[in-house]
């Protein structure tokens, strides 16, 4: 916080450009708010899971006798999603140097990996549904599909966001100086990534350590 007295004032510009610009801050608060929606959904998930354990009735307990969802394929998907952050970083670094080709390639890479992740998810959902595990299967099914589905929705939005950026980069809208959309898309993508790590741990890993009451 600047402490300014008398004479010093004159030397200060109207809007001193220190730190990040308004758009960056706007994006940060937007993402923070989104992150909190996830936090609430995760809290709801954990709340219901713990309550199931407390009630003990097999109708309510989510996972009886060490049952758990298959986690092998999701782990591959997770790796893919995490890896997809690198081309995104590369895209922004490229345009910073004015390298449009790198930008386009980076974006394409990120989008492809994102779509592959979504493919994994669709595949997983259809497998689970065919095994009879649906949104209506106890609170567990509800919470599982809602949480992962909400994340899937965000990946989809992220992919669309990146696609728009891709089209605009092909049109040549971005320069080394002016490319906030790319920066925003990258921020959003990292956010989607990081959230997934949390969701994945809660949904797939945590049950491996949960011991149902009375077992």
């Amino acid at each position: 916080m600047s402490v300014v007295h008398g004479g010093q004032v004159a030397s200060i510009e109207e809007h001193p450009e220190v730190g990040h610009d308004v758009n960056w801050w706007g994006m940060i608060f937007f993402i923070a708010s989104e992150a909190l929606i996830f936090a609430n959904l995760i809290a709801a998930y954990l709340y219901l899971e713990v309550r199931g354990l407390q009630l003990g009735d097999p109708q309510f307990v989510w996972l009886v006798n060490g049952e758990h969802l298959p986690w092998q394929k999701p782990i591959i998907a997770t790796a893919i999603l995490l890896f997809s952050s690198f081309p995104a970083i590369w895209a922004r670094k490229s345009i910073l140097k004015g390298n449009r080709k790198g930008l386009i390639l980076g974006l394409i890479g990120t989008i492809l990996l994102g779509v592959i992740f979504l493919g994994f998810q669709v595949f997983e959902y259809s497998e689970l549904y065919s095994e009879g595990f649906t949104m209506q299967t106890k609170a567990f099914g509800s919470a599982f599909f809602t949480l992962t589905g909400f994340h899937g929705l965000h990946v989809t939005i992220g992919v669309l966001f990146l696609l728009i950026c891709l089209i605009r980069s092909i049109r040549g809208d971005f320069t080394a100086k002016k490319h906030f959309a790319i920066e925003a898309a990258e921020m959003y993508w990292h956010f989607v990534d990081i959230v997934w790590v949390v969701v994945f741990s809660v949904v797939y890993l945590l049950p491996l350590f949960m011991i149902p009451a009375g077992h």
Binding site: M135, Q136, K138, A139, S142, A143, T146
Partner: peptide, 20 residues
Amino acid sequence: LLLLDRHFGTHFYGFAYGGD
């Protein structure tokens, strides 16, 4: 979640299937 419960058959708030 309320909307999902109301229209998509999930069980977040209904007690009968483990919601609360």
